[in-house]
Structures are given as structure tokens and as C-alpha cells.
Design a protein around this nucleic acid. Structure first.
Lengths: 129, 129, 129, 129
DNA sequence: GTGGTCTAGACCACA
DNA sequence: GTGGTCTAGACCACA
């Protein structure tokens, strides 16, 4: 369910967060469902438990899961909703910035180039590239 | 010095902002120079004073001019530099947002579509549409 | 949740902005939560919709909320963080401006007077004055 | 008329600019008056001619003096006016930032401390400190 | 229903 | 005269 690229420039805990978010968005992980424990997943992914702890803490901070001490960690009831909204917020934000760039007279080509290259850096992280 | 298209889909106050920025960039409006008063320009352009106030407030927020109530409004001493810097800042900002979108799993195509369409709306405005 | 003093010298829209920021800082308004609509809140506070629109637009500009036209307005996912960062940024900004004032030869006393009086105007507003 | 502190953290060319501005503000240097040549002043102050050239270029960029090639350099007719305006702009700016800090709930004491310490750093530059 | 823009016009403070 | 705020109310796009 998860795959980590240890050689990517994208930090491992961010890779984990992204993948959890993706699985929540796709419905593979539904509200109420239990997440794998830090220990079991750290073994499965050959990742340091601290790294996983950091990823889980961030997911919690984002309200996507919650911990029931002694029982484990579960997907929040409104996790899919939260995800949808934060994507929407990001798209609104990029549209606004684009408007200002257009007003400032920056050519569309320059903007698209900036966006594409930022996307590439974030997505690949250049494992082999 | 200014021309407004009342039938454009680009809001009037944004048209005014763009044109002021252009004149500052070109040096037609130099630091220290006085801007036309809200009332006089509103008459000249046949635009409501409130609309002009909104445009002027945004220019001021961007640090391009400042108001001396009772005396008028003036181009900031460092307006040309602010203009250059804000372009840089906008490109940095759009790169950051793009990174977050990438991490959220939004396909590059969707991002580029959003950017292009926001750019189009800002730039054209379609006189007759 | 909100209280407006119509007789304060602090503009109504600034009172609204401050109170929203406070509620976000305190966590009363959490990321993703929907804000009251322009119209409903304008009725509740007996304030013109335009005035509220102005306050909401500024909150949005500060990245604390975003609008989904037709759906409503929501607290940004990273609003609490934005709030913290903007405080830092403001302190950095005031330091920069102070440096320029010092270089321009303005006495420290004049600067402190200007700052104090601006602070007073913003904070008090003098209900009965 | 000029005094340079070679051990200050404030760059020498900035010290020179500040002092020219001060003399213009006080009227010691009136519009139309000729500035000392780069060479003569560099000898008088025991400063590298390049440093002086940099200061003069900046004064020119700010519209406070102009070069008449072959004849020397002169204070601009509107130099005092320019100075007054840029000070005004800075004071307006610091008032605005202060207002935002007040709105954000930063105590006045913190703001005054930040301003004072920034002023100190700029003014003294800590020759001996 | 939601947000966004614009006009018309009053009123205030400041100089 | 200058800028700034506010109300009242129309109208648009979007869903």
C-alpha cells in the first residue's frame, strides 16, 4: 500500500503523508478505519519509527486522523471533506497569484515554466534523474 | 493616460491597478509624483469614487503609493523597486503553492489548467463576450 | 461571538478583522470551518454587507480564509500558522522601516511617538470620545 | 562637514548618503549648489573614490542631485521636497505596520522594544560597543 | 442560496 | 480642497 523512495529529495515523512492523503482521497482508507501502528509500519517500510511518528503527528495536526491512546490511530470522520477543502484552498490561492502575475505583465509562458519546474522538483525529487 | 473598458469582465478596479503599475514600471509615474485625486480621476474616467478608492487602496497596500490625507496621494520613493521585488515574490509564491499541490497529489495537468484559465480571465476579459 | 462598537473611532471592518483573528488564534475557529455568510452576519451585526465584504476580503488577502463562490467561505487549512508567521513578518518589517528612518536622520523620539500614537488609535478607539 | 566612522557596522557609503541627506534637509546644502568632486572629497575623508562614487550614484538615483558631465554634480531643485516626502512615506508606513501589530495583539512594549533596538543598530552601528 | 462589483450619495477628519 | 468609511441597494456569476 505504501512505497518509499529513500533516494528522493522529498523527505520520507512527507512521502508518507502524501501517500496517506492519496489513499484517503481515493477512499482506500475510510473514516473510522484503523491505521497501521507505528511499529508495524516502520518494520514493513524499513523506516525509522521516529520518522513514522513525525508523519503521523502531522496527519493528526491536519485533522486527518486521531489517536485513541491504548487503542491505536483512526481516520477522522471528516478526513475526506478536510482533504477536499484544503485542495480547493490551494487551487483558489494559485489562481489569485496567477492573476497578480498576469496583471504584472509576466508572460503566461514564464508562469507555466515556473509552475512545471516546481511541480517536477516536488513530485520526483529526482531519485535517479 | 488611462482607459477603462466598462464591458470587460476584468473588474474596473483591477484595470486601474494594472495601468498604474504599468506607468510606474515605464517611469511615466516617478517617485514623489502626485496622483490624481480620487474625485478628479473618478470624473475623468466616469467611474464611481468608491471604485477608485478601492484601486488606490490596493496600490497603497502594495507599497506603490501612500496617502497624505488632506494633501493627496503620492508615488512611493521606492515604488519601482517594490514592483520588481513583488514580481520575484509572486514567482516564489506560486512555486510554493505548486509544491503543496504536487504533494497533495493533484495532477500537473489540473494545476496547469487552473493557472492558464486564471491567466486568461485576468488578461483578456473579452470586450464583447 | 462578535461585538461591534459603532461609535468607536476604529473602523468597523477593522474591528471585525481583529475579532476573527483572535478567534482563529484561540482555536474557536478551526481550519475548514465555514464562516457566516456576508449577508447573514451583516444582519446579525446590523452592519452593511459592503463593510463585511471589505473585512472578509482582507482576511482572505491575509490567507486566513478563502472563498468558494456559491458555497461559502472557509477558514484556511493553515490559518493558525499564517497568523503566527505574519506576526513575525510584521516585526521584521517594522525593524526595516525603522532602519530607514534612522538613516534618514529622524530622531528616535519622533519614531517612537509615531508608533505609540498609531498603536493607541488602533487599540482604544475611545467609545465616547 | 562630514565625519566617517570607519569602524561602524553601517557601510561607509550609507553614512555618506545619510549625512548628505541631513545637510540637504537642514538647508546647509541648497538646491543648485555644487557638491564636492569625488576626488577631492575622497581625499578629505580618506575614503576610496569607488565608495564615494557609489554614494553619489545612490543620491542621484534618489533624485537628490544630478550630474552635469564635465561641470560637476549639483543638488536638485526639488531635493528638499523629495526628502520631506520620503520621510512622510516612511512614517505613514510605520504607522500602518504598527496598526497591524496592534490588531494582532502584540503588546505595545514589544513593538517599542523592536523599534528601539532596530534604531540603535542602524544609528550607532556599534563603533565601540 | 453563495460571493463579488459597482453606483449613488452621505458624512467624517484633516489642512 | 484631500482621503476614508459607511449605508442602501442593484446586478452579475456560479451552484
Amino acid at each position: 500500500m505504501f512505497s518509499i523512495d529513500k533516494y528522493s529529495r522529498v523527505p520520507i515523512y512527507e512521502q508518507i503523508i502524501s501517500q496517506f492523503e492519496m489513499h484517503i482521497a481515493l477512499g482506500d482508507l475510510a473514516p473510522g478505519q484503523q491505521l497501521p501502528s507505528v511499529r508495524s509500519l516502520s518494520v514493513e517500510l524499513s523506516v525509522n519509527p521516529n520518522t513514522l511518528q513525525k508523519a503521523y503527528a502531522e496527519l493528526e495536526r491536519r485533522g486527518l486522523c486521531y489517536a485513541a491512546p491504548g487503542n491505536g490511530r483512526f481516520i477522522s470522520p471528516d478526513a475526506p471533506e478536510k482533504l477536499r477543502r484544503s485542495r480547493q484552498a490551494l487551487l483558489v490561492e494559485i489562481a489569485k497569484t496567477t492573476t497578480e502575475l498576469a496583471q504584472a505583465g509576466i508572460p503566461l509562458g514564464d508562469v507555466l515554466t515556473a509552475v512545471s519546474s516546481a511541480y517536477e522538483s516536488a513530485a520526483t525529487g529526482g531519485g535517479r534523474a
